[in-house]
Write a protein that binds this DNA or RNA. Structure first.
Lengths: 348, 348
DNA sequence: GGATAGCGAGAAGGCGTTTCTGCATCGGGA
DNA sequence: TCCCGATGCAGAAACGCCTTCTCGCTATCC
């Protein structure tokens, strides 16, 4: 009974439109549109008939046309560099999930950090009338912020605070200070910091917080800087930190990947035992930090929470487009594991 | 001189359209359209003038309207579950990069594997008239394939071959056989396989290839199955493999994460030394496999190459929509590191 | 002077939403 | 029982923005 004769097996090879549904259901195309608009005035019976026809034909509202009229799409852009790396992969996953949950459709622009590339990404997003842009990495140039504002497109920056846009970030400097305090409270006087030569605000803040707190209390801080904030960078930093005849008793690493590289270097090239001879603290608490090999004490940064806050910020911005930029600061806390010889009572 | 008086600082608060650019440049709106269409007949001088006006106004072609007319957008959908996990995070990164390089715009639908969720993802993608869909995980239900075909939307499946769509995959069974052969050639007679209880085609093929080759040559294979194919799953599998009084001399793990979990379990809970007492081979060759701690011998699966092939398949499908499904099989090769006591000469 | 490239103007087409208007129906009052 | 106003629903038309096509005209080149 569902093999209706009026539609032979001609090759459709195109998306069915509302007119076809209207014809099939014997109604006007406005009625079809209303049937798909919640709260529109259509009788229940007619709506049902229309839905049945739509289902049978495989009709799907054309969001391109809808967006054209609405002057915005449900598309939300995510601009990110190296989305496969460490914490960022988790953040991207959490964001895409949160956005989809919200009813948005995430576009992921995987690109470099240069101004040109960022501008190109933004243009693409403008072209699709994206509802908003979320930047995960790289400082957006001021022209970026300005253009988004001019076009009325909300812009959320993650992990940067110095821009004129809404952002959600964590207290990197505070965490750095806390790391220093924890080390000091456990009697370490010669400390180390493992960072990178590419000085992003995030890493600089962690470094500053740590170093200032440490030196303010008379401790010595030895610095090691790798090329990138990844495993190899951690190895390089370790090479620098453990090259001289004086080495740190405790090292704070700019993130977990760096900590892993550092730990592996230490295990392989020195006789130091972790944590007996050397305490290590990382940052991010990615799943690998909990692995037996590393069992890393680190600062927890919850990607799901950050994604949630980013989406909340987006909602707020849309309801109040004109209010001043909001800076949302998430707290972090240290997760004690076995890589640092720290007594739990000294945890602040 | 660029503060032109004819545009006072009125709040634009909307995207500028082609008519505004036309007015500003003193040309017709068709000319604007032509200027943005490569290969259209516009004089260089006029195009330049138009582009200057567009630049100044911040004009950006509305891809929604363009897509409406073209009946397709440059959007390409990526449907994926747990995009943050192991190899998949690298694949997603490589795909987004390759797609952007191609001029497409990737939509990432991060969702579950249930049929409902996949259908919802597909509907979203249809709604935006996505140029194509790429599925990274989860077997698409046959309705999915059928609907994509009916709508003329190319569908590329990664890591599954049993579907009626184009796919790119690797020779999992062959790799499994090779793993067994390498172990056998090095004198191991009691082998182990670390897999998962959730039997996806990928894992089943690797397991089958390994077990059949091994048993065909008279070796014994002990099986261990964790819950998921991740670190914790590897630990569980190890618990099973090393619980009895007879344990394997060499274990093939369904992927690198499982191998890491297994190695860590062995190091912590047994006296066995890797690779002296136990050889381990993994699968994927994610960056962590090269880390000092693991130094894992594993099968290399290049995400960039797979992404490249997926995009190539997409190009081909678009130029020849009606040809039968193509099954693109990539080769893998084993990467010898320190986790397996294997002499290089025995590598096939 | 005739061919031609370039350009402006206008209109159609793609598809869904929204507004406006007309019609039918229903309830209530005379 | 009849009529009027209110109400709900349906259809027509306009709109959003771009591309493409046609047509007619002008500047340009040989």
């Amino acid at each position: 009974m569902d093999s209706n004769g009026d539609e032979p097996s001609k090759k459709t090879q195109h998306y069915v439109s509302a007119v076809e549904v209207a014809k099939k259901a014997g109604v006007s195309r406005s009625a079809v549109s209303r049937a798909f608009t919640p709260g529109a005035s259509v009788s229940a019976k007619k709506r049902e008939k229309i839905m049945a026809a739509a289902e049978e034909l495989g009709y799907q509202v054309n969001d391109l046309a809808r967006g054209l009229l609405a002057r915005t799409s449900r598309l939300v852009g995510l601009v990110v560099t190296n989305p496969e790396l460490g914490y960022r992969s988790h953040l991207v996953a959490a964001l895409t999930k949160a956005l989809i949950h919200r009813g948005s459709v995430p576009i992921v622009i995987n690109t470099g950090r240069t101004e040109e590339e960022l501008v190109a990404a933004q243009k693409t997003l403008f072209g699709y009338r994206a509802e908003a842009t979320i930047i995960l990495s790289g400082s957006p140039p001021s022209s970026f912020v300005e253009l988004a504002r001019r076009n009325g497109q909300p812009l959320i920056v993650l992990g940067r605070s110095e821009t004129g846009a809404d952002d959600v970030n964590i207290d990197n400097e505070g965490a750095g200070r806390e790391a220093a305090r924890v080390f000091l409270a456990n009697g370490f006087r010669t400390l180390g910091f493992a960072g990178t030569v590419s000085r992003t605000p995030t890493t600089v803040e962690r470094e500053n917080g740590f170093c200032r707190e440490a030196t303010a209390h008379g401790a010595k801080v030895i610095m090691g800087h790798g090329g990138n904030s990844d495993y190899a960078g951690g190895q390089e930093a370790a090479r620098q930190l453990f090259a001289g005849n004086e080495h740190p008793q405790a090292v704070f690493c700019v993130n977990d990947l760096v900590a892993f590289g550092l730990i592996d270097h230490v295990r392989r090239h020195t006789n130091l035992n972790i944590p007996d001879d050397l305490s290590v603290i990382g940052f991010d608490d990615i799943p690998e930090a909990a692995w037996d090999t590393y069992n890393l004490t680190t600062f927890r940064q919850d990607p799901a929470l950050m994604a949630e806050h980013a989406v909340a910020l987006l909602d707020q911005r849309q309801s109040e487009p004109d209010r001043p930029p909001v800076h949302d600061r998430l707290s972090t806390h240290i997760v004690l594991r076995g890589s640092a010889r720290i007594s739990a009572s000294t945890k602040p």
